[in-house]
Simulated assay, not measured.
Amino acid sequence: MGLWDDLKMQYRMGGITQRLIFWNIGVFLVSLIFYEFRLGTFIFPDWLALSSDPLVLAIHPWTLLTYAFLHSGFLHLLFNMLVLNYAGMLFLTFFKEKQLVGLYILSAIFSGIIFCGAYFLMGRVSIIVGASAAIMAILVAATTYSPHMPIRLLLIGRVQLWHMTAVILIIDLMQLMIENTGGHISHLAGAFFGFTYIKLLQTGTDLSKIVTGTVDGVLRMFKPSQPKPFKKVHRNYNTQPRSTTASKTAVKDKKQQQIDEILDKISRSGYDSLTQQEKDFLFNAGK
């Protein structure tokens, strides 16, 4: 199985967090066609990046979402994807994958609006890219739901989840007016949205259904209607020996059991823990 097949299998089996990472990497690679490279930073046009200029935003409203899949450089992308992988793992300990997608999209839009509003009030114009605000929302949501969850940090050891999140928020507040003001504003807006999302969820309001409901509705619009099959009565003449049928059923059950064992191994240790033979078997079984 080649590298491309391996990537497709990881995308299919890796879960929604890994798919978001794939989307971010894919969009970044495609967007390189439209960038300018200055002083080690990728400068994206204002029809992709989010601009705080109200006129530009009115012409390009989709940038309220597209900016959350763009990054200003390879290191920016790498750091954000590492944090997204960690925050997504924490969030999915308690919630569903659809809720993660909904939170990512809604928090990105909310943070973009807050960024534009803040810069408009300050009389400044700037652009912003990056998934940081949406990632912050996911991290803060997990922290709000389970603040005392124990985690282990490299070189520090065992701490509670809220300790790490509090340090990140304090750093954002300290640097708010020093550098990358727009970025820190969006981070704090994302944190606020993540906190609000959990508090509303605990009262029975799931904001992520706005996204999932919209997506499901669009998919239903483009899904071709299936004609109802004619009812027909027929008699089943089974000329196949019972022993042959039972043998095929046993082979099918054994194959399904092997698939289930591999999927359990992925859920426990991740896709990378599979042997090459197991990867090939799972890939061929999915065809």
Rank of each mutant, 00 (worst) to 15 (best):
M1R: 05
L3N: 07
L7R: 08
K8V: 13
M9T: 08
Q10F: 04
Q10E: 09
Q10P: 03
R12Y: 09
G15F: 01
I16R: 01
Q18N: 10
Q18M: 07
L20W: 07
F22D: 06
W23R: 00
W23G: 10
S31W: 09
L32W: 02
F34H: 04
Y35W: 10
E36L: 09
F37K: 15
L39P: 01
G40I: 02
T41R: 14
F42I: 09
F42Q: 05
F44D: 03
P45C: 13
D46C: 11
W47N: 07
L48A: 10
S51L: 05
P54F: 15
L57P: 03
A58D: 07
W62G: 10
T63P: 04
T63I: 06
T63K: 05
H71C: 02
S72I: 03
L77T: 08
L77D: 02
L78A: 11
N80F: 03
M81I: 09
V83F: 06
V83G: 04
L84W: 05
T93K: 08
K96M: 12
Y104P: 07
I105K: 09
A108W: 01
A108Y: 04
I109C: 08
C116A: 12
G117T: 05
G117C: 12
S126C: 07
I128T: 06
V129G: 01
G130E: 00
A133H: 01
A133D: 03
A134K: 08
A137T: 04
T143W: 01
T144Y: 07
Y145T: 08
S146W: 10
P147N: 12
P150K: 09
I151W: 08
I156P: 04
W162T: 13
T165S: 10
T165H: 02
I168K: 12
I171W: 13
D172H: 00
Q175G: 06
Q175H: 02
M177G: 11
H184Q: 09
H184C: 10
S186G: 02
A189E: 01
G190V: 07
A191W: 03
F192I: 06
F193M: 01
G194F: 04
I198E: 00
Q202D: 13
T205F: 14
T205K: 14
T205W: 15
D206Y: 03
G213I: 05
T214Y: 11
T214G: 14
T214H: 10
V215I: 13
R220N: 13
K223E: 08
P224T: 03
P227K: 06
P229Y: 10
F230N: 15
F230H: 12
K231I: 15
K232F: 10
H234M: 12
R235I: 15
N236L: 14
N236T: 08
P241S: 15
R242L: 09
R242V: 10
T244I: 14
T245G: 12
A246P: 00
A246C: 09
S247N: 03
S247T: 06
K248N: 12
K255D: 05
K255G: 00
Q257R: 11
Q258S: 12
I259W: 02
I259D: 05
D260H: 04
E261T: 06
I262L: 07
I262E: 07
K265L: 11
G270L: 05
D272S: 11
T275W: 14
Q277V: 13
Q277K: 13
E278F: 01
F281S: 08
L282Y: 05
F283P: 00
